[in-house]
Write a protein that binds this DNA or RNA. Structure first.
Lengths: 284, 284
DNA sequence: CGGTGATGGTGGTCCGGCCAGTATGCTACG
DNA sequence: CGTAGCATACTGGCCGGACCACCATCACCG
């Protein structure tokens, strides 16, 4: 029966020309039918598809457990190797985590951004993205998030953001790392209030990557304390703008604060480039 | 450095006091040493790390070929299953592609955005991101890209962009799909001229996702032709602003064009939300 | 009653094997 | 002499079985 399944899956991709999107063009027999290259369908991929679909559609939720590999191998009627390859893919996407010895099977983690994070990390270590680019991007994300938050915030949101700011304050004496963690939470909250999950996601990832980039430079330096003080003031400013529902100001504060915070870490030419961007935004 | 970054983000939730940045706190021996949870290192992961590092650092370039699985299994001194699991992970990140029967081994594809694309796709099909969010994001990306391109473009860049626009024109009679492909290329070029790889990447991915979302709605409708005409005019506008090095105008045009293009596809309340954003940008 | 060991199941890894596919070179035919 | 066709020697995809370290559970024992 495995043989059947295999030969079947081979035939799937042998499909003919696609008449679907041909409404605009004549079907002249002299015209090329524009075949597209076929990619063999591997059976582990179909397993990935099924499980991924179940997670995305919510049939499998965070905290649920997948069947054990040995049971899946009978449910999917494939070998364990194939199941395992599917698990590796799912795990590398952050959808699932499997621990050895766990009698429950692999745990479902839900949608995550670890793959996204890895992609950006690779680009950074590959020198294709420099700090300016990340800062510029954060300016776009956070100023937008702030503007949206200023428009959309409820009083509960405001209370939560105040609490997050307070957390940053109390985290300050616990060191730079704890402070950064609270900082990430604060921005995450603002992004969440903004209502745009895309901005929230990208913002968080890039924020994280930036911290990973500069933390070695910051760790040893003594400027940590004053920087945290300054950062706290900036965040309070932004929060005040959001409270007052002053969207333009909230956006501008986000950009200026980022510039003040990271300007010193940028090479001079990058610094001026970012400044140009700031001006451009002001006149956009 | 990925390792650094990862362990950094681990510590965030581990929450204990960090001796690393402990210039502010005493190192009391009664203090907890804040052990971190152990994650077993699986051998396939170390293979992934090695190959990934080689690709990121450029020792393996696009078009190169990895050794065959049977040879890797002796080089890494692991079994073939382990090698294969590593290959599955690398393949799901888009770093590598392996075809059955290829005597050269797996092909190196270089850094790619397929993982990113998949992540966003999942969020879209999981209803966590709606069309507004994508459009909003595209406004941010493309207006920024246009502004930067307007400042940084060389005359060669300008010529290339003109050529890309011309390609869109000639692709128009070949149907909506071909036109969209040329459209993506045009925007990709602008993003490339902007010099920010992060914007380029995210912009391209989201553009792609948007096309995937609306193409079923567009395919059948007959408004394709007029929309393409309009789109062509808009792109010509943007290009003219970039030619004139008028950054603010280039940015504004990008936002307005997106609004005009997709406004009709948005639910009314989302439409007004985006309009608010447009105004906010104008006064930011 | 609380610790403790056996136990059954789990994931991680290995092995050896079969199959379908492909690139290459050789052969046989035109 | 050139080319079409075939054999070959690889490749990756998949299988089934096996071993191990690990973990949760629970019956057993002090």
């Amino acid at each position: 029966m495995t043989g059947q399944a295999r030969s079947h899956s081979r035939r799937v991709d042998g499909s003919g020309p696609k008449p679907g999107s041909a409404t605009l063009e004549e079907h002249d027999e002299h015209d090329e039918v524009s075949f597209r290259p076929i990619r063999p369908v591997r059976s582990y991929e179909r397993i990935v598809e099924q499980i991924e679909e179940a997670i995305v559609e919510g049939r499998l939720r965070e905290g649920d457990f997948l069947p054990s590999e040995r049971e899946m191998m009978s449910q999917f009627s494939v070998s364990r190797s194939t199941v395992r390859e599917a698990m590796r893919v799912l795990e590398s996407s952050g959808l699932v985590r499997s621990r050895p010895g766990n009698p429950n099977g692999a745990e479902v983690l839900g949608l995550s951004t670890v793959a996204l994070r890895k992609t950006v990390d690779r680009l950074v270590t590959g020198r294709r993205i420099r700090l300016v680019h990340l800062i510029h991007f954060r300016m776009l994300m956070e100023s937008s998030a702030n503007m949206l938050a200023a428009r959309l915030r409820t009083s509960e949101d405001l209370a939560a953001m105040k609490a997050a700011l307070e957390e940053m304050r109390v985290a300050m004496p616990r060191g730079h790392e704890a402070f950064c963690a609270a900082d990430v939470r604060f921005h995450g909250l603002v992004a969440q209030v903004s209502g745009n999950a895309l901005i929230q996601m990208f913002s968080e990832v890039v924020h994280d990557v930036v911290l990973g980039m500069i933390s070695p430079a910051i760790a040893g330096s003594q400027q940590g304390a004053s920087m945290m003080e300054l950062s706290l003031l900036h965040h309070a400013d932004a929060l005040e703008a959001i409270r007052a529902k002053d969207a333009p100001r909230a956006g501008r504060i986000a950009r200026e604060n980022l510039f003040e915070h990271f300007g010193a870490l940028l090479p001079p030419e990058d610094c001026t480039a970012v400044r140009l961007l700031l001006d451009a935004c002001a006149h956009g």
